[in-house]
Structure formats: C-alpha cells, structure tokens
Amino acid sequence: MPVDIEQRASYEYGDSLLHLCDARIKITLLMVYLITTALLPVGAWAVYLLMGGVLLIVAVLSEIPASLLLKRALLLEVPILLVLIPQIFLKTGNFIEINPWSGFAFSLSLTRLERVASLLVRSWLSLQFAVIIMSATRFEDVLAGLRACGLPRMLTAIFGLMWRYLYVLLDEMHNLTQARRARSSTLQGSFKQAGGSVWWRAQVTGGMAGMLMLRSLDRSQRIYQAMQARGYDGEIRSEAAAIPLTKAQYFSIAAFILAGLLMVLLANGMAA
C-alpha cells in the first residue's frame, strides 16, 4: 500500500470553526471543490490561483498547524505521475526541438507540458483540500454524514467495523513484521536481502498474510457471537438520528455550488 498510515493518520484534534462545522456541510463543500477543480480547463492559471486561495482560507479556518499540513502537502501519488511525464516529449501541438549536443535531439511539447502542469496543480489542490477537510472531521462524523447523505445502513456498519479493527489488526501486523525482522538479518538500506530466494520470501510473506486472514476470520466469528450475546438479531439499529439541516446550512450549500459554477464559467471565459 502506498501510504504511510502514521504519516497521514487523519484526524487532528481541535475545536476550530472547521472542526465544529456539520459533517454533511463539510462533505458537500469537499465534493463541490473537487468537482469544480476537475471541471477547470487546462491552463486557467488565474482560476487555479483563486482555488488555491480558497484552500488557504479553509486551511486557516481549520487551525491545524501549518507544519503538519505542509508535511502532508508533499504527499502526491508519485508513481501515477510518472505515467504522465513521458508525453511531454511527444511531437504534439506546439513543440520545440532541443539539441543539447550534436547527434542527439529531443522534442519538448509545450502544449503537453502545459497540460501536464495543469493536471498536477489541480490534482494537488484536490488532494490538499481533502486532507484538510478529513483532518478536521472525525471518521465517526464522516460516517454519520455519509449515512445522512444516503449511504446504506449495511455499508455504514461495515465501514465502522472496519475502522475499529483496522488499528487492532495493524498492531498485530506490526508484531508479525517485527518478529520476522528480529529473525532475519536484512542489510539495512540495501536491496540485498539476506535469507533465501524470492520464492522463499514470498512464501514467508504470504504465510504472514494467511495468518492475518485466519486470525481475522476467527475474530469476526467471535465478534459476531459477542453481538448475538447482546441481542443482535440481524437488523442493524443505531440510536444516532440525523438532525435536519437549518436554513442557513442549506443556504451555504447553495452558495458553495454557485461559487463553484462561477469558477468554472470564469475559467472557460478566460480560455475562450
């Protein structure tokens, strides 16, 4: 898995305006921001800057330390970016020939370069916005918000269970890998793995995965028994009921959507 859980471990405690805001509002705000960003045309740099401004305002509202946000800001999906890069060397659109020394030349497509750069900026904005919103919203509230927005009961329950057991199993995982490391002498910082062929290493790793799966199957059976013991009868019940949105909240949702539309129109107007 590409992410470092500890590094991105989401929620940051706080009581800022953004933290206190209703999860449903935050989810709509996030969706509007993401859709708007995705709809912006290539090369609308001024509007990207505006969107960056919105990002900055929300970041300030969240009162999350800048250092922390900056640390998370460097997280980009690196490998998938690499799929993007080669296209700037295509002889497409507006391109220039670069001839650094005789006998070797390559072309650089300015059109593609602008396109790739635009994409990176928009992708970064989206990621950062999601990071900030999720840093200021507890997972339980995200779930309750999604439930209120129509997420089926069963999925809500499954996500909740998964969230709860994620950390329990990550701990077990950690213990397993530590036990493995304690028994194998890997040269640190090098790729030369001591101890066996690829085949053997795969077997060991697979065995650990299998062990993890077996344990979780057993555990899920015991959890089910514990649920039954307290009266679970196959129906999912919960005592959380959604409070209806106020007029002001509806109004702010409408305002977000309008602002998003404006941004898209503005960007397209400027491009034309």
């Binding site: 909740g160 269970l161 057991y165 015991r222 959890i223 028994q225 514990a226 649920m227 009266g231 919960s238």
Partner: peptide, 23 residues
Amino acid sequence: FQSPDDQLFSSSVFDDVAYGLVY
C-alpha cells in the same frame, strides 16, 4: 468474552455499552 477486542466492536465506548440496550 475473554478478549475485550472481540467484545468491544464499536468506535466509541458509549456506542459499545449502548449496543445491547439499543437492541
């Protein structure tokens, strides 16, 4: 149950204690 990790499956203590009562 012996292992509280099997008994406590909700994401807050309140939800877990309330579970049986809700049912």
